[in-house]
Every structure is written in C-alpha cells, then in structure tokens.
Design a protein around this nucleic acid. Structure first.
Lengths: 157, 157
DNA sequence: TTTGAAAAGTGCCAGTT
DNA sequence: AACTGGCACTTTTCAAA
C-alpha cells in the first residue's frame, strides 16, 4: 500500500488528536465524509494505525519520576534472554524496555512515584532476575514526551 | 477529586483501548450508560485524561531505530537551558527528552529510520546547539513500549 | 471516485427512583 | 448516587452520478 499526501495528513491529524469527528477531519484534508472515512478504515486495516488510546496525566497519579536503568549481563543464550524479556516486561512500572548495542545490554525506563518507590521496584527486579550489574539514572524533569512519530514531510505534486 | 475503584477501572480501560463505546465500557465496570458517561466526562475535565490519540506503527514508516543520546554540558544558566530545551524539543525526531540527575545532564530518545538518518540528525543537532559532549547508544530491539501508566491497584471494600 | 441521503449506532440530556 | 427512555448527532452503508 502506498500513502499519498492526504493519507499522511490524516495520520498526522489523528496521532495528535483522535477525538475529532470524521467530518472535521474531512474538512481539514479537503475531502467529504465518506472518502475520508474510507481512507481511515483502510489505514487501520493495513496496520498503519495500531490502536486508539487515552493518554493519562502521570502527575495526577503522583508518577513523577522516570528512572533509566542500564543493565549489563554475561548471560546471552536464547532461553535466558526470552525469560528475562518476559519477566521484566511483566512489571507495569517498566514502560519502556530495549535491547541495546554497546556497553550496556538493556535499557529500561521505569515510572514510579518517588525514590522509595523506585527502591521497592529495584528490589523486586533484582530478586526476579538475579541481575548483578545495574545502573540507575534518575530524570529530574521530562522536557518532551510524545507518541507522535516523525512522519515523512509531504511531497509536492 | 477522589477516585474510587470504578474510576480506576475506567481509566485502566481507556488507556488500553479508547475505541470502545460508552455502552461497552459501562458493562465492563457494571454501570449503565449515563453514569459511566458522566464519570468519563468528569475524569476528562478534572485532567486525569489528557488526550485521545491514535498510535501509529513505527515499523510501517521504517522508523525502526531508537537512539538514546546522552548529553553533558558545562552551560547551566537559565537562559541557556531554556533555549536548549526549546531548540531540541523542536526536532520531531526527538520523541523523549529528559533533564537528568547524575553524570549526564540530558537524555534524548531519537527515532529514526537507520544509522545514516541518525547521522544526518546528529549533524543538525550539533550545529543547532553547539554541543560537544554527546554519547549515542543504539537500541537493537524494542522489547516493550507502552503508554499505559502503572495505576494503583484496586482496593477492596 | 465522489456525493448525498438513509440506516444503524452513540452520545448526551431530562425526568425518575 | 444510579437507571430508563428518548432525542440529536455521528458514523456507516448504499445507491446513483
């Protein structure tokens, strides 16, 4: 499937605000309701749109602290990796989890209320995974956080 | 405003899937349409729900590489920090941006197509900010990524 | 492919328990 | 507080251009 400028406009629109009606979307991209609706359906069934969610305000729940956890390991066989991935992913506090190139093997972003809450998480993590080499870096401030992908800019025609 | 179990259930529901109708939500939490709708309205106007968005599939756009960029600086006055925050935030490739405690001053997550694309971004970043101490760490695999906050578990009553 | 309008489904409000 | 019923509006389908 090939996307044209109108598709990209629609995607840019709904990844920034999905609460607008089809009618409003249609007028933004210069279409009428039906063809606009059909494009969105198509983008959804083709998998460009993965899901529609509400983003909650972390501050309201006291979840003000992001901790970046760097993990080094000497275990590298496939079974261990799978177990590790599953175990770590199961923690709801782990909101991001990457396998890295370079010095550290894994990077986690952990979202907690405060330092004591992180300490409790940390202990549970260590005991669940038997990790030894773990470095924690605390974020003081979240300057930017977005779910919006950097989409290709519109081509002229 | 105080949240009860029903509110937390509703929030957990819509932060995982916002495409369901009020009616379906209502049946999930054991309410009928109107009170359910009223609760959601209230949660929205109280700011617990920040926005509703569509999450797009990064792979479909070839955005397969996350790069974590650690930045050290010796500039620390307020003006410089504000300028820096504004300049860096303006890059659409920068999807996350934190001010850190500890060894590094800032951490960025940059979302790009491949290594050459990162190199192009890197050059633009350097020339826009006059940074000197920059370390880039590449993610090989995104094992987990979620927008779902770890909400407090439901209390008994 | 688009348009316009009908059918189906939701969101929203009033009155009531 | 919550439920029932109903109107208005939006989404979805479909026939015709």
């Amino acid at each position: 499937m090939n996307l044209d400028n109108t598709d990209l406009q629609l995607l840019a629109l709904i990844q920034s605000d999905d609460s607008i009606s089809i009618e409003v979307m249609a007028s933004h991209v210069g279409l009428s309701k039906t063809p606009c609706w059909r494009r969105v359906q198509k983008l959804e069934s083709a998998g460009y749109i993965k899901r529609r969610v509400a983003l909650l305000d972390a501050e309201k729940f006291g979840l003000g602290v992001s901790v970046f956890v760097q993990v080094k390991t000497n275990q590298h066989d496939a079974n261990w990796s799978e177990d590790f991935a599953r175990t770590v992913s199961a923690f709801p506090e782990v909101v991001e989890f990457y396998r890295m190139a370079g010095e550290y093997d894994y990077l986690l972003r952990v979202l907690v209320k405060d330092i004591p809450a992180y300490d409790r998480f940390y202990k549970r993590l260590i005991s669940a995974t038997a990790l030894t080499d773990v470095t924690s870096n605390f974020a003081m401030e979240q300057i930017k956080w977005t779910t919006q992908l950097p989409l290709p800019t519109l081509s002229k025609e």
